[in-house]
Structure formats: C-alpha cells, structure tokens
C-alpha cells in the first residue's frame, strides 16, 4: 500500500482497524517486559529505589519532545500539502503530548522530593519542560476555541511551527537564566554514564512508551475522523432542514 493511499481517510480508517489490535498487544507486551525489567533492576548505591522513577520519567520526557516533532511534521503537511489527515494528526497529538509532558513533570517532581528535598526546583530542565507544557495547553486551548476544524488547523499549524523554532531558543534562555541564578541545592542531573543494568530497562520502557504513543495517536486520529464525519453529517442535516 503506497503512502498516497493512506492519505485517503477511509483507507486510513481501514488500516487503523486492522493494525490497532496488534499495536495495542505489542505495547502491552513491551510495557510488561519493561516493567518487569525495571523492577528487577538493582537499586542505585546513592539514590536507592527512587532511581526506578527514572524508567517512567525519561521515556515521558523523551515523548514530550518527540510529540512536538510529530506535530511539526503534521503542521507542514497541513500548510504545504493542505491535507486534512495532517490536521487530524496534529489535533490528536496535542493532548497526548500534553499528557506525556505532564507525566514527565509529575514523575520528575516525585523524584526530586527525595533527591533535592523539594517537589519543585526552578531547575533549567524542569523549567523548560514546564514552558513546553504551557505551550501544549495553549495549543489545545486554540483547538478547542474554534468551531471549524479547518480554520483551527491552519492557525494551530503555524503556531506549532513557530513553537518549533522557539523551543530551542526558550531552552537556551532558560539554561542561561538558570546558571545565572544557580541555587546550591541542585544536584548535577545526568551524572555518571548509565550502567547496562539501568540502560536496558530504560530502553525497553522507551520503546514501550513510544509504542503506546503510536497506538493512542492512531486511535485518537480514528476518533477524530469519525467525529468530523458526524459533524459534517449534522451540518448536511441542518442544511436540508433549512431548504
């Protein structure tokens, strides 16, 4: 099946119906393996069992950024090829991205409590992720504020691309700002290179969460296509009622 065939929403729906159960299964299996590996991983000699938060936190943080990338590609699809499926993809991805970002923030905060002695630290990474979260919420607000999806799609696409240009700038300024106001309590994030005992579960969880995103994204796109069909059916009904 060529890519161009996928561009047709009906074909896309058919494909999603066929692929989705398998994807969900793959996600569940990988997630189970990843969780088992995470639980089996040894405690860190400094951080103790809390290091295991990392196995949830890092994949979420990775997806928080990856989803914006997916939305930027979709935005290009909306603006350059004017393809409705690209609109749907961007619209479906935004809440998922916000959710992953939120989870990254929450897990980071829970991790920070035993490590730094506080739930929130105006640390450069956390601050940038917080800004990213706010931008996701703004984008969702934009989608929700406009009744006509086609109109919202173009606006959201432009905002997504502007955001994609701006995010590195924001990241850079927050880093700079943070070094300027460096508080003493912050530990160096990262630290020594990861041992394989941590790396393998982390990679498995990364794959599992990425699969989770793909599954949820396809499902959300399917729902959105159906929602829009219902919307246009209702509009046709209204038009006939008026005639």
């Amino acid at each position: 099946m060529a890519v161009i065939d996928l561009a047709n929403p009906t074909r896309f729906l058919k494909l999603v119906e066929r692929v989705l159960p398998w994807l969900a299964l793959a996600t569940a299996v990988t997630l189970a393996i990843g969780l088992q590996q995470s639980l089996a991983a040894p405690d860190d000699y400094q951080q103790g069992a809390t290091v295991k938060i990392m196995f949830i936190h890092v994949p979420n943080a990775w997806l928080a950024m990856f989803v914006w990338g997916v939305m930027s590609l979709s935005a290009l699809g909306t603006l350059v090829w004017r393809h409705p499926l690209a609109d749907v993809s961007a619209q479906a991805a935004a809440p998922l991205g916000a959710a992953f970002t939120f989870l990254a923030l929450v897990t980071g905060s829970l991790w920070g409590r035993p490590m730094w002695g506080t739930y929130w630290e105006w640390d450069a990474r956390m601050t940038s992720v917080l800004v990213l979260f706010v931008m996701y919420l703004g984008l969702i607000a934009l989608w929700r504020a406009v009744e006509d999806p086609a109109r919202a799609a173009r606006a959201a696409a432009i905002l997504t691309l502007v955001g994609a240009i701006n995010l590195p700038i924001i990241k850079f300024s927050v880093d700079w700002w943070n070094t300027l106001h460096q508080p003493a309590s912050v530990l160096r994030a990262g630290g020594p290179a990861l041992d394989n005992a941590f790396l393998i579960p982390l990679l498995t969880m990364g794959v599992a969460f990425s699969l989770l995103f793909v599954t949820l994204h396809l499902a959300a796109m399917r729902n959105e296509i159906l929602r829009r069909r219902i919307r246009s059916l209702r509009m046709m009904q209204a038009a006939q009622g008026a005639a």
Binding site: V131, V134, L142, A145, A152, F172
Partner: peptide, 20 residues
C-alpha cells in the same frame, strides 16, 4: 484574526514565546 478570537487566548499563546 484567523480564529475570530482574541483576548486571553492570545495571552496564553504568546506569553510563552516571549519568555526569552
């Protein structure tokens, strides 16, 4: 203009871009 909507929505969208 595209959205026929101004005010708070704009603030929410533009403010993060102005952080730097």
């Amino acid at each position: 203009v595209t959205l026929h909507r101004g005010g708070l929505l704009l603030a929410v969208i533009v403010v993060p871009l102005s952080i730097p």
